[in-house]
């Protein structure tokens, strides 16, 4: 096994729509905390930010035509090389915003496999607190990410409560530990093929072609696989 990584790339994905946005601010606090913790341990965290507001047109285009604009291509590249992700959404109508969800809907299914993710959300009322665990976690489970145990949720009243800071700290250390473990890289090294991929998936990086399959044998005139007889 190679030397454990000490320099990490963290991607912040923010679905906030105002500038400044509390959704972005929450994500930045997690990222900043993770960077500070890393620095204490002699490591470093470089942060790339994907602000979905600027990609809204391209996200709509990708949804309707599967065509990725230049901004989406860059976002996919950032996520593909990230060691960890902070994904932060505003809650609208008791759900993460459509812009946030749509962005993740158009990514390749295998782009984020095993990557550690902190899930964060902001809302105008504490009644939306379970949106992160109830609605965002399933999406990231589908994408086979490694979500950290602590969800970070901030309603208006949380911003002047020290408890929010504690949850941010907790999520940040969980994220850092998962990045340090090298879990995502090891999954990629040892088990990547066991996940479903399609040609050109994982953001265009999945271009290896396995010639040793039943379908490839069929493609080259091989005998059809016989179905089990029913009699």
């Amino acid at each position: 096994m190679s030397e454990p990584k000490r320099e990490f790339r963290l991607a912040v994905v923010s679905g906030g729509t105002s500038d400044p946005s509390s959704t972005r601010l929450l994500a930045d606090r997690v990222a900043g905390r993770a960077a500070a913790l890393a620095s204490d341990r002699g490591e470093s965290v470089a942060v790339d930010v994907v602000d979905l507001r600027g990609l809204s047109g391209e996200i709509a285009t990708a949804l309707t035509s599967q065509l990725m604009g230049p901004g989406m291509e860059r976002a996919i590249e950032v996520l593909g090389r990230a060691d960890g992700i902070v994904a932060s959404a505003p809650v609208y109508k008791a759900a993460p915003s459509g812009l946030f969800s749509s962005f993740f809907h158009v990514l390749d299914n295998d782009l984020l496999i095993a990557k550690p993710v902190v899930l964060a959300a902001t809302a105008g009322t504490a009644r939306h607190a379970l949106v992160v665990d109830d609605q965002m976690r399933p999406l990231f489970a589908y994408l086979r990410t490694m979500t950290v145990p602590t969800s970070v949720f901030a309603a208006s009243e949380d911003w002047n409560d020290a408890e929010l800071g504690k949850r941010v700290d907790r999520a940040a250390i969980e994220l850092l530990l998962l990045m340090e473990s090298g879990f995502a890289d090891r999954v990629r090294d040892e088990s990547w093929k066991s996940y479903q991929h399609s040609y050109g998936s994982a953001g265009g990086t999945e271009v290896e072609i396995d010639l040793d399959t039943d379908l490839m044998r069929l493609a080259t005139g091989g005998a059809p696989r016989q179905k089990p007889r029913s009699d």
Partner: peptide, 13 residues
Amino acid sequence: IRTPEIAEQAAFY
């Protein structure tokens, strides 16, 4: 558009 098996079959024949 993106199915290697189809490209392989075209090449094989």
